[in-house]
Amino acid sequence: MQPTYSLAQLTALNLSPPQMIELAARTGYDQAGVRLLPVAPGAVAYPLMTDKPMLRETLARMNDTGVRIFDLELIRIGADFELERYLPFLETGAALGARAVLVAGDDPEEARLIEHYAQLCDAMLPFGLSADLEFMPWPPVRDLDSALRIVGRADRRNGGILVDALHFDRSASRFAQLAEIPAEWLHYAQICDGPAERPTTTEALIQAARGERLLPGEGGIDLRRLWHELPAELPVSIEIPNDRRVAEMGHEAWARAALQAARALVEGVRLKAFPVA
């Protein structure tokens, strides 16, 4: 069975959910992701929880094209986390038929973060959603070690860890740790590439992650080894924002190039088309 491929919202952040569905359909993706809540106050997001006309249009485009919504972004668990604020988000996710929610851990007090993450998992379960904790090198959940500890201590059946290729590499997480992730915690992974030389400041890490990613095979991340360690049928979210190249090529050409490069890498590893170190 081949993995499915989803067009991540960050790859085309300025496109609304209906436009994301249409772009995914035109360029050969199975699914798409949508960002319902911003990464920071004032940042781009499409709150389908309150924008009912856009929600109806999104559902109509899904019905017309056959492209499904795979993941939702994002729920940030900070020190002031209140579960009730996110219930409309979860209800909208269920209406969209989504399967996964990207969760960011932004509370430096780990015990409190684990408690809130467990509460979120429990709330998501009736909606058929997984809570996929993403580790990044700058917030409190800064590496795979941290994510393994938090998801393990929460011990919820719909808990999960999201492996983003760029963050895995930049956080200095180790390939050997991937075997420690229970298969049931892996619901999807995000693919992209980046320069071999890692940024040295938080500001540069964030800038590279949000607007300077490379197509798989163009950079220095060992994607072949990473996908060799991940389950062969794991759904793949293609998250490759690159502001300069999208401006030059346009969203459609960039999305096509991203899917072609991701498929070549993932399926090449799966079929052992090239050796893995």
Rank of each mutant, 00 (worst) to 15 (best):
L226Y: 09
R26N: 08
E110L: 11
V163Q: 07
R224N: 12
L15M: 10
L15N: 06
A179L: 05
P231G: 04
E57Q: 15
L230R: 06
Q177M: 09
F70M: 08
R142I: 00
A40N: 03
R76Q: 12
P139D: 07
P53Y: 09
R153E: 13
E110P: 09
R174L: 14
P231H: 03
C121A: 12
I221L: 15
E212W: 06
E248D: 14
D80C: 00
P199H: 09
I69T: 01
A79L: 02
R270S: 14
V269P: 11
D169H: 13
F274D: 07
M124K: 04
K272S: 14
A247F: 06
W254H: 13
F127P: 02
A172P: 00
C192P: 02
A258R: 08
R157Q: 12
G194T: 10
T200F: 01
G97R: 06
L223P: 07
L83V: 04
R213E: 05
A232G: 00
L148Y: 09
R35C: 03
P137Q: 06
D122H: 14
A98G: 10
Q207N: 11
R142H: 14
Q9S: 15
A172G: 13
L265M: 15
L230K: 06
A189C: 15
L96M: 02
R210M: 10
L96V: 01
E229L: 11
P108Q: 05
R244C: 01
R112T: 12
A253S: 13
R157N: 03
L55N: 01
R213P: 08
L230N: 02
M124C: 15
G211P: 05
R153S: 12
D51M: 03
L166N: 01
G250C: 08
A131K: 06
L271G: 00
D222V: 02
V266M: 10
T202A: 12
C192W: 00
T92Y: 08
H228G: 13
E82H: 09
G28L: 03
V103N: 06
E212P: 01
E212F: 02
A179H: 09
D106L: 10
L226H: 02
N242K: 04
L133A: 11
D132Y: 03
Q177Y: 04
P195C: 08
G160I: 08
R245L: 15
G33E: 15
P139H: 08
V39G: 14
P140Y: 05
N242F: 10
E252N: 11
A12P: 07
R149H: 12
A232N: 05
M49V: 04
D80P: 00
W138T: 15
Q190L: 04
G78L: 02
L125V: 01
W138P: 00
P126H: 07
P108D: 13
G160K: 05
D80T: 06
D71L: 03
D64E: 15
H228E: 13
H167M: 03
D132I: 01
